[in-house]
Nucleic acid binder design. Structure first.
Length: 259
DNA sequence: ATGGTAGACCTTCTA
């Protein structure tokens, strides 16, 4: 079973590129982030034509997440539990049906910049809610994959120029600590477990020639419960996609499970 | 040299 995550930076602006990638990599399940549209504007028919079921938690202009699955999805949860006043669409979860069901979440964790503002507090509070919810899900002792744009650079080796990020929310000690604490609940970071080479990035900024200079960071991650990690076969970053026409600033991350 | 990119949208915000 092939799971994938990709921050597409507007699903409608990127549709041609996204569909091209779907036809090349044929994921069974795909988690999309930053779809940047409301549910009604999501191009569901284009994905249905490729054989996917669609679940969307959209938002006007900003954010927005979606799940695409070859098999029907059950128990769809829209929005991260823990704060009913949170209006940002950054979390969608569903159980992927099949002989071996897997619960999958598409996560767009808050960026948190600038750190001197309430945005950083929102990021840390959101991570705390994610921690609590992950604890609840792990207690189910089921195959589980939390995938998405975590907006956290875990280690200095996950940035081409770590010193450029010292004042940035993505590399703050608090952000990195919260990410580590999440993993310590018993989640396996798939890329670290399988490939794990340093200088492997998932994001290159549009500005300053970041891609041609390979000035990237690794901020898109897949976290697996023990019941999913037991079946982990491969985890790869589709780096080449950043060089395609009209690219997103993020590239897809693929997880293959023997399920 | 105080710039630079991209997307959505009302002209500025977010990343």
């Amino acid at each position: 079973m092939r799971l994938a995550t990709w921050n597409v930076n507007s699903v409608n602006a990127r549709l041609e590129t996204v569909l091209k990638w779907f036809e090349a990599e044929k994921p069974d399940v795909a988690c999309l982030q930053e779809i940047k549209c409301i549910d009604e504007k999501f191009p569901a028919e284009a994905f249905e034509r490729l054989g996917y079921n669609v679940a969307v938690h959209g938002q006007k202009t900003y954010n927005g997440v979606a799940l695409l699955s070859r098999t029907p999805m059950e128990d769809v949860l829209r929005g991260l539990p823990g704060d009913p006043t949170d209006e940002q669409s950054r979390y969608i979860e569903a159980v992927i049906s099949g002989p071996k069901p897997v619960r999958v979440a598409s996560i767009y964790l808050p960026n948190g910049n600038p750190i001197a503002t309430e945005k950083f507090g929102y990021k840390l509070a959101w991570m705390s809610r994610l921690h609590a919810h992950a604890q609840t899900l792990l207690a189910l002792e089921e195959p589980l994959a939390l995938m998405g744009d975590f907006n956290v650079i875990p280690e200095a080796t996950d940035a081409a120029h770590p010193s450029d990020w010292t004042g940035d929310a993505l590399f703050q000690p608090e952000s990195r600590e919260a990410f580590r604490a999440l993993k310590w609940l018993g989640l396996t970071e798939a890329f670290q477990a399988m490939d794990g080479r340093p200088d492997s990035y998932t994001f290159w900024d549009y500005q300053g020639g970041a891609w041609p200079r390979n000035n990237g960071i690794r901020i898109d991650h897949a976290l697996l419960s023990p019941q999913a990690a037991d079946h982990l076969r491969a985890c790869v970053i589709n780096r080449e996609v950043r060089g395609w026409e009209k690219p997103s600033d993020h590239v897809p991350l693929i997880v293959d499970l023997d399920l």
